[in-house]
Amino acid sequence: MAVLVLADHDGSAVTQPTRSAVAAASKLGDVTVLVLGPRAAAESATKVAGVAKVLHTEDALYTNGLAEPLAALLVSMASEYSHLLAPASAAGKNVMPRVAALLDVQVISDIAGVVDADTFVRPIYAGNALATVKSADPKKVITVRAASFDPAAAEGGSAAVEAAPKGEDPGLSSFLGAEIVKSERPELTAAKIVISGGRAMGSSENFHIIESVADKLGAAVGASRAAVDAGYAPNDHQVGQTGKIVAPELYIAVGISGAIQHLAGMKDSKVIVAINKDEEAPIFSVADYGLVGDLFKVMPEFEAELAKK
């Protein structure tokens, strides 16, 4: 039986975490991708390696990702698929448990591995343990931890686009508006380099120190919970157990102590750098390269050194 992947997109292309979900789905069967939005996003999905079919609609009912109509649509399509997957993004985590409950199955959240069609690995306790779970449900509803699956290639596929079915509108909620910050920088969960600031940054003005180094490196910007709570960085920058999970080639933690909740979001990075004035800070226990020092002295030097070739 085929498997269905609900895509996230930015209006013109499906996201990298979506391609990671496609990679996970490819281990389970022929992949159909559902794209709700502009035609261009659906076209991008047709090219993703391993995608057999793309279902597409521009129905305005789904423009704002409201969970109730979206879940109703997925449930109406579910009989044709053995597995329904979505990236474990804010959107995927919002809708997939709703879909699962409507199908009377237990959702399998945030999988980090596929063992077989019924068996999956998922982190628990802030990634301090990995559980291998086998589902007895007839249909699996899954969200996929993007950092754990190499994304399917953006090019190489040649799937056909068909019209997605029309779903019902339960009419329970309405969209009032959003403040979405469009950044020129790479997306946190897709970036090759991430540089994050913690409470030690002290203010949102000081946080520019992180941003300007990020621009030198072509990096995405992240933050600890403490930095977000204090208003130095926006909420969607939070890296950790309850924020974004990242696994870039290089992660640089600046003025971050390394609480388990933060480590949960970045400890699978390939190379970790920690800059902290406290040589006892727990972040150093996971860092490949540690630099003990005052960030306000170190960061300008770091930026200057990067400028030298």
């Binding site: 237990q106 990634g127 301090n128 559980a131 040589e279 860092a287 630099l291």
Partner: peptide, 23 residues
């Protein structure tokens, strides 16, 4: 329960690396 826990393991341990002396 619908899920059977087959096993629970520790994730691979990360080794602390080295301290560098300068930027």
């Amino acid at each position: 329960p619908r899920l059977t826990v087959l096993k629970v393991e520790e994730p691979p341990k990360r080794q602390a690396g080295k301290k560098v002396g300068s930027v």
